[in-house]
Design a protein around this nucleic acid. Structure first.
Lengths: 237, 237
DNA sequence: AGAATAATTAAGTTTAGACATAATTCAATA
DNA sequence: TATTGAATTATGTCTAAACTTAATTATTCT
């Protein structure tokens, strides 16, 4: 993740983090073992304690170190495997792949949210949301099918937006900053609608992305995105 | 992500990050707009510039701010949606759900890696790796089926380990810290083997997790994990 | 006008020092 | 012996000040 070329001039904190990482990988410092405290390391590396602190914080965030006040810093027994994924905006993703972006709204209307959706975002069932279904295309081939519910009370001016000419995702990203977001991946067999929208056989395994966002006033939007077969979400950019 | 209760005594950097986040969400600072510089904010908030810097860094990491030297700090036009997933150790995940963990090794032998796998980890095809297939159970029900290739040269003493009595994942986590990791999610229809191992019908949509790790000396292991139907990977802990 | 150059500015990083806080250790007490 | 409480200690956080670096702006020269 934080790979730095050895030749490049890195900030000292990065260099120190790299050196500590190396000592762990090379087993100089064993799993579970206590490592020298910040003051010691500051002396041995010839930097200020704050710099050592920054480096160790970094490794703790990565899950490689366990740190506790007074108790000291230890090499993590069970290095947590964390993965950071950046969820791109569809259009950018498609265009970056050199394809022509297309967008078709299948339906836009107000209707009461289904119970399952209501439960997902913590809203009493039966509330009226804006229901939007759209397909995103790359070079005329279906890329994603999104089934979205938008809280009409979450953003002022929402009612006047015509999402047939305005990508809902992008409009929301620009106009409805959120405080909390939930993202989940799963796999589902394509149902009849998924199959029709994406142009794939029924039963085809699809990567499903559920994303919901909240404001301080409540939920903004929740969406189920069905990705075309072969879609891969990866840490590698 | 970094939600703090308003009542709790947060560090100042957290409080400032929260306040800046609020101003963005409340549209006091619009998308793309330049916000006051660190020195100004330090004065208005009555803290040192380093503290403001820490807070703004935090928000920049979240993708809410764009910062460039000399150019100043602006509210991000396209807030990047980042998601941090912690990939748990299977056994812990199962036990945390209150189920009994079980583990069965289906096969363990040395054999040449297939071309596709070789390409994935950047190794000349035909090299001999340790090939391991295992099923993880929760309360006797299949939870994950893993198909793993381990580089015998990556960790000393690897050849002597009998993974029938020793969970490969955990052994590797403890004994083979890695420098780089790649994780990818996708969806696949269960093939005959997946179906048999997981006890599901052929064609069932499965969430597939590909994970590979590298050392400075080369690849350590690569694994394809097929998760039971209904498996969800989520940002919410 | 256009290109090259210098000055300026805002973020990036580091430092030394201080105080806060959580855990541990150890002694005193019931 | 168990409990309480104080001293200790390593990390957590903050501050003020300085320096570094990238990008912009202004200036000078052609």
């Amino acid at each position: 993740m934080n790979d730095r070329q050895p030749g490049s001039t890195s900030p000292k904190a990065q260099l120190i983090a790299g050196e500590v990482r190396r000592r762990i990988v090379e087993r100089e410092w064993q799993q579970g073992e206590r490592i020298p405290d910040e003051a010691d390391l500051a002396v041995t590396f010839g930097v200020a304690r704050a710099t050592v602190n920054k480096a160790l914080q970094l490794l703790a965030d990565e899950g490689l170190l366990d740190r506790r006040r007074r108790a000291g810093t230890r090499v993590a027994l069970n290095p947590v495997r964390k993965a950071i994924f950046t969820i791109p905006i569809v259009r950018e993703q498609i265009e970056r792949a050199g394809m022509k972006y297309g967008h078709r709204v299948v339906a836009q209307r107000r209707s009461p949210i289904p119970d399952e959706t209501a439960a997902r975002i913590g809203v009493p069932p039966g509330r009226e949301f804006i229901h939007l279904r759209a397909v995103h295309y790359g070079d005329e081939r279906a890329f994603q099918f999104e089934d979205r519910w938008i809280n009409p009370d979450s953003v002022p001016g929402l009612d006047k937006v015509d999402f047939r000419h305005q990508n809902a995702n992008e409009w929301l990203v620009r106009n409805a900053p959120y405080l909390r977001a939930d993202i989940a991946f799963s796999a589902e067999n394509a149902d009849a609608r998924d199959a029709r929208m994406l142009g794939v056989p029924k039963g085809q395994a699809l990567l499903i992305l559920h994303r919901s966002t909240w404001n301080d006033t409540g939920p903004i939007t929740t969406v189920r995105i069905a990705c075309h077969p072969g879609y891969v979400i990866s840490t590698a950019d």
